[in-house]
Amino acid sequence: MDFDFSDDQEQLRDAVRKWVDRSYTFERRRAITGAGGFDRAAYGELAELGLAGLYVAEDQGGMAMGPVEAMVVLEELGRGIVLEPLKHTLVTSGVLGAYAPEDVRSAWLPKIASGEALVVLAHQERKGRYRLDVCEAQATPAGAQGWKVSGEKSIVPAGDQADAFLVPAKANGKIALFLVERQAQGVSTRGYPTLEGGRAAELTLRDAPATLVSEEGLTVLEHAVDIGIACTCAEAVGAIDKTMQLTAEYLNTRKQFGVTLSTFQALRHRMADMKMQQELARSMSYYASLKLNAPPEERRRAMARAKYQLGVSMRFVGQNSVQLHGGIGVTDEYAGSHYFRKLTQLELEFGDTLHHLGEVSARMQDTAGVFA
């Protein structure tokens, strides 16, 4: 099996890495965090690179690329702990491109690809935890082929800044998926900062006008979350890589008893253990991206396995990095603490480690332990 990246993929990686290094510095990120956790200008710069249209077809103004290219991009954005929710754009554009009616695709995908519109998934409810089949939001018919949606959704990424939402709601006793514009009547949001410095919101819908995307809402929602898991795994790999780099640099410069910390054998062993978790995370991120277009049941098993391993690796690398740094590892002025926060939050996104351990267990078959 060939795990080498193509020339086009390497050029894409190089372009994103250069943008992160030159334009999304740690100082700019701190300024964005202080201003609320989302910068439309920074998101526009990502769109100018073509990244918002990564999953959008060429005739809709996109790049028509796939999961591996998305993985390459998200790794580099993870290295820079970029706050702007590009992965959520990939989730929604992937879902709209695959399941939405033609008129919905034509109306929204070009705007998503250009960065004019930010559309995010709003699926979490307070009683649902990570279960996708728990949905109390309700949709009722309204006029000729129109709908109205009522309900509440939590932790919506950049929810008070987005232009529209993909919202699952029950219609005729079955979960369907709808598109709701933020400026529509009956829509209200309450924004707040997140752990790692980004932005989320509580979304309230009261008979909000909605457009039907798919009547098979649960099937589409599962696919959307799986795209999100694969993107989160790739983003985590980038953050882990940078965390390892910062930790190694610190151990090679900080002195104790007149010698650098990197000369202590016990600390070198800790770094070796962290390196092992880093490579396990990378291999399972590759696995997730390569399985993203597999049949639904196989895809769901793969995402649960990948997210579980990434959760273990994120926690291990993040916590050990803080311990090896000592007190400076948790100070706001030091970049390492922000990577630790990012890894902590990513471990919870789209299902935490214990949730996905349960998913792996529930989906075990006679070939348990052998990845097909």
Rank of each mutant, 00 (worst) to 15 (best):
Q323W: 13
Q277M: 15
E48M: 06
P67I: 03
G369V: 10
S262P: 11
R190Y: 11
V104G: 00
A362D: 11
L83H: 01
A137D: 11
P110W: 02
R299M: 04
A137L: 07
S23I: 10
R40H: 02
T92W: 06
G44R: 04
T194F: 10
P101E: 05
A139G: 06
M276A: 15
Q11S: 08
A210Q: 01
A100F: 09
K291A: 15
N320W: 11
L83W: 03
L90R: 10
A57N: 08
G34N: 03
D7M: 07
T204N: 13
G326N: 01
W108G: 09
D8V: 04
L246W: 05
S285C: 14
A171S: 15
A158S: 11
H355F: 15
E196C: 11
S321V: 04
Y43R: 12
F26W: 06
L195S: 06
D163W: 02
Y286Q: 03
H123D: 14
S283I: 13
G186P: 14
V16Q: 09
A35D: 09
Q124D: 13
S150V: 14
R363F: 05
G80M: 11
A306L: 01
L177K: 05
Q345E: 13
A142T: 02
R22L: 12
S214L: 05
A208G: 02
A100T: 09
Q245I: 07
V259Y: 11
G369Q: 02
P168W: 04
G327K: 10
H356V: 05
R206W: 03
A107D: 06
L51H: 08
V104A: 01
R305L: 14
A306P: 08
I81M: 08
K307N: 01
W19H: 05
V317W: 00
K18G: 13
D332K: 12
L354K: 12
F316H: 14
V237K: 08
L251M: 00
Q245D: 13
Q309E: 15
L221F: 05
K170Q: 13
E347V: 00
K291Y: 06
T25Y: 07
V104W: 06
V317N: 05
H338P: 01
L179A: 03
E152F: 03
G143R: 00
A31V: 11
K242R: 15
W19F: 12
K255A: 12
G44E: 08
L51K: 05
T89V: 15
V220D: 00
L267H: 05
Q277A: 14
R301I: 02
T247C: 04
I227D: 04
C231E: 10
G80E: 10
V104H: 02
G351M: 02
S361Q: 14
V237W: 07
E136D: 15
D241Y: 11
